[in-house]
Amino acid sequence: MAQEMNITVISTPSKLIDIVLAPDGSNFPEWKFLIKVNLDGMGKGDHLEKECPTDATAGDWKTTDKALMSRVINCIDRRIILSMQHCQTVKEVWDLVNKWFSGTSNLRKLYQLSQEAYRSSQKGRELRDYYYDFKSVCVALCAAMPITNDVGEMTKQRDRLLVFSWIAGLDKEYDVIRSQLLGNKDLESLDQVFSMLQNASGNNDSNELQERNVLMSQGGSTSDNYGYGSRGGG
């Protein structure tokens, strides 16, 4: 007697693409590309960028948008959907996931992408896999920091990459401060970051100096750190 099997069938018309956006956004570049390609191919790419019209076509536009929205939502992990219940249009969903995962307003994501792009390592992967993974990172980084005609914005992007490169090379003792910096809304310049780190280091140095003074008052030696502490006499 054949064993009974339970098979779950997903109706393809209910999903715009075959992949689901991961809750950590790790596959966002691929997901974004496929969503856009499919909607453009259907002649509905304008729903990603335009608001609902206010003329006589508004009714039909809303009906189409709701149908498209359901198919896009079905391509998103359920844990993310809970945070987008306020979205009413495809554009609102699109703008929200771009804000979360594109990196444009997320310094930690930008930092991660910059490190994967500029400090890349094969790490035992097949050459082809290493190449495709690197290309994926480059696409995500370019999407997060697009080329524009705005000189000010381009200068800001360049300065941000310089900051990322510099703080990535900081010693381990600065790990906590680095994490705090990436939690900021923005990092304007390398000079600003250096000043912030110097101030933080100054506070740490003051605390350390107080500890050294206590040790010296108790007869402790500081030769290991300064090179001129108490020496054995003969």
Rank of each mutant, 00 (worst) to 15 (best):
R71F: 03
E51I: 08
L48V: 06
W31Q: 06
P53Q: 09
L21N: 06
G103K: 01
S70I: 02
H86T: 13
W100Q: 10
W61R: 02
F28Q: 03
M69N: 12
L34S: 09
I10H: 10
T12A: 05
F101H: 10
S114F: 08
Q88S: 10
D95L: 02
L82I: 15
P29A: 02
K44Y: 14
V93Y: 12
Q115V: 10
E51C: 08
D60W: 01
C87A: 09
P23F: 07
A58C: 14
Q115W: 05
K32F: 04
R79M: 09
I7H: 00
C75Q: 07
L16G: 12
D77S: 15
L110D: 00
G45Q: 12
T63D: 00
V9G: 02
M69L: 15
L107A: 00
S14C: 11
G103P: 01
F28A: 06
D46P: 04
M69T: 06
L110T: 00
I7T: 00
T54A: 13
I17M: 02
D60G: 04
N38I: 04
G103V: 02
S105G: 09
T89R: 09
F33R: 15
K15Y: 12
A22M: 11
T64L: 04
K99N: 10
M42G: 04
D60P: 00
T8F: 06
A56E: 13
I17K: 05
K50G: 01
T63Q: 04
A22F: 11
R71W: 06
V20A: 11
T54C: 08
I19Q: 14
A67L: 13
V9H: 10
W61P: 01
K32N: 12
M42N: 10
R71T: 08
L110W: 02
G43H: 04
L39C: 14
V90N: 10
E51R: 06
Q88I: 05
L68K: 08
F33K: 15
V72M: 11
I76N: 05
I35T: 07
K44C: 15
I10P: 00
S11Q: 13
W100L: 15
D60L: 05
C52N: 10
Q112S: 09
T8Y: 06
R79N: 13
T12L: 05
I19Y: 08
I76L: 06
E49A: 02
Q85F: 03
M69D: 09
E30G: 01
C75F: 11
A58L: 11
L48D: 02
S70Y: 03
D60H: 06
F101Y: 15
N27H: 11
T64M: 07
C52A: 14
V9A: 07
N74G: 01
V93R: 11
